[in-house]
Simulated scan of single mutants.
Amino acid sequence: MKITPFSSAFAALVLSLSFLGCSPKSDEADSKPEVALVMKSLANEFFQTMSKGAEDHAANNTESYSLIVNGIKNETDLGQQLNLVEQMVARGVDAIVIAPADSKALIPALKRATDAGVLVINIDNRLDKTAATQAGLNAPFVGPDNRAGAKAAASVLTEQLQSGDQVAIIEGVPTAFNGQQRRLGFEDALKESGAKIVSVQAGNWEMAKANTIAASLLTAHPNLKAILCANDSMALGAVAAIQAAGRTEVKVVGFDNISAIQPMIADGRVLATADQHGDQLAVYGIEAALAILAGEQAPADRTTAVDVISK
């Protein structure tokens, strides 16, 4: 497995986007809506795919809107994501489509955005409903049912388990709603099967951290049968640890269906993953924003498809 380090090119991209965000809209751009896509880490292939899908959609609809794509350095860089939101508001964008790195921490900044007249659409990771309501933030959610998707992916594993088999979970960022829901979905499937959950640890969506956790799990639990990972980047880290330990009987389940995981599905190193169609997820949010900007009533939350991918 090849692990590509965070590159200077990516750093330059983030920096250039930050400078772009500080510039006011041009007069030429005032005639059509300007939409800002604010994602999590562009070092994660899932968000690279999301970015590409959004850029392709914008390129095919240049007469309808213009798009600014922003991302942060890593999954937990909340300060940078807050800065990006503030930059987009200062620029005067018409809408922000955001995949928040944290389900609560972004809410005050997003409320300030809506107070400034910016439409906010929440994608991928749902904002905390109670906290949003208390803050007076109305941001429609467009995205998958992560709990159902994780349960469906884990069910491919549970068909091969016996009651009492030992399984571990590597979850994402514990304060992220989608991470919480994926963990719960895994737990739903495992509890129904009678499997024993021996450990739940946070990998923060990161390959390297998941690799370290998986290596420790394999040492601590010699009878471990499987590791369920809340995204495919962490599944890649778990697979590397399993290969290094010579424990190829340990099965892995992921979530996202990134391209790097697909050969591992084919050869059995990963048993299953959940495809939430990352190339279209931002597009769904952008289309919802454009419809509202065009005068349509703000829609109720929209649940998008999740499909299980296995050999």
Score class of each variant (00 low, 15 high):
12 A>D: 09
14 V>S: 03
19 F>I: 02
28 E>C: 13
29 A>N: 13
32 K>M: 11
40 K>V: 03
46 F>C: 08
50 M>S: 08
58 A>V: 08
59 A>W: 12
62 T>L: 03
78 L>M: 14
78 L>E: 06
79 G>I: 10
89 V>D: 04
94 D>E: 03
97 V>W: 06
106 L>N: 08
115 D>R: 05
120 V>P: 02
122 N>S: 12
124 D>A: 15
126 R>N: 09
133 T>G: 11
138 N>D: 15
139 A>G: 06
140 P>H: 00
140 P>Y: 12
141 F>Q: 04
143 G>W: 01
147 R>G: 11
148 A>P: 01
165 D>L: 12
166 Q>N: 10
172 G>R: 01
173 V>M: 13
176 A>W: 00
181 Q>Y: 00
183 R>I: 08
189 A>D: 04
195 A>H: 10
200 V>S: 12
200 V>R: 02
202 A>E: 01
215 A>P: 07
216 S>H: 09
219 T>F: 09
224 L>C: 11
233 S>K: 01
234 M>L: 01
235 A>G: 10
239 V>H: 11
241 A>T: 02
243 Q>D: 10
247 R>A: 02
249 E>F: 15
250 V>D: 07
267 D>G: 15
271 L>F: 03
273 T>R: 08
277 H>V: 07
279 D>C: 04
280 Q>S: 15
286 I>Q: 06
299 P>Q: 05
303 T>A: 12
308 V>D: 01
310 S>T: 15
